[in-house]
Design a protein around this nucleic acid. Structure first.
Lengths: 147, 147
DNA sequence: AGAAACACTGGAGCCACTCCAGAGTCAAGC
DNA sequence: GCTTGACTCTGGAGTGGCTCCAGTGTTTCT
């Protein structure tokens, strides 16, 4: 099958497939006479695996780890569990952070109930205040920002 | 004050300050004879405002909007409320998505309780399965991925 | 006077794509 | 055989929000 078909089969995108090949997530496929990439069933399976991991919000580095186990069927799968446990930890942590953030944002939102002049708006005033700074120093984590 | 002092005063980083200047979030400051940036109180206030917004996980585009209101004290602040309401919506939505994701990940994790050979690991098997693909097509939103 | 600490610029790197231009390939219809 | 249109190829730039770097200059302290 050609790249477009593969994209459909694995719910992906041709650009993404080429990108995965470039960074070594997918193996280089054979080429046709006209230099088109030519894929087989194993490629579909592998790409689906990757897309599923991405749908679970794993990084490509995590996916790479899982692929190593997938490529070594006789190896011990403890590492798989570890990857998953850590990823779950990050997701849980991120939910907690966002929940706090939501609370803080809703509180801030209540500082202005009606349209006022900007200089009197409780929201702008408070954002400009020192005291208002929430304790969110280390905003860096595996499970990332809101954007 | 010089850039390093400003960074401390606003809990920021000198590289970030120069970056904000480059993209127009912060005004260009005066320079000393030795070509060092030279900041005053207004700069501290503005940068603190920006850092507070970022701590609330707003994008720099959202911050730019809020700064416009801050720079026009006589303007109507309805737009401020709107920016906040939309941002809160994104955060709430992201929490919901992540909560579903967490559930799915924990379910997946239960597929393998003890260390097995990779080929028998319920997790790897299931990730490789079609049926396992969660309905998370449109993963793109203002409130973003887990990383 | 020399060392340490700070600041300057321009550019690269991060992640996971996404989009583009300009060229080539291929199948179907006339 | 020729045209049209859909598909594919490559290499490179852009996204956000920084972060880090090299190589150079300035200031401060001893």
């Amino acid at each position: 099958m050609r790249i477009g078909e593969l994209a459909i089969a694995a719910q992906s995108d041709v650009d993404t497939i080429r990108y995965y090949e470039k960074i070594g997530i997918l193996h280089k496929p054979a080429r046709t006479e006209g230099n088109y990439r030519y894929y087989k069933g194993a490629h579909v399976d592998r790409l689906r695996f990757v897309r599923h991991c991405r749908a679970l919000d794993m990084t490509l580095d995590e996916v790479r780890l899982l692929l190593q186990f997938r490529d070594a069927p006789e190896s011990d799968c403890a590492g798989v569990n570890q990857v998953l446990d850590e990823h779950i930890g990050h997701v849980t942590e991120r939910i907690e952070t966002l929940t706090l953030l939501e609370k803080e944002l809703r509180r801030l939102r209540r500082q202005c109930r009606k349209a006022l002049k900007a200089k009197d708006c409780g929201i702008l005033v408070e954002i400009g205040n020192d005291a208002a700074l929430v304790g969110r120093k280390a905003a860096k984590r595996h499970v990332a920002g809101t954007h």
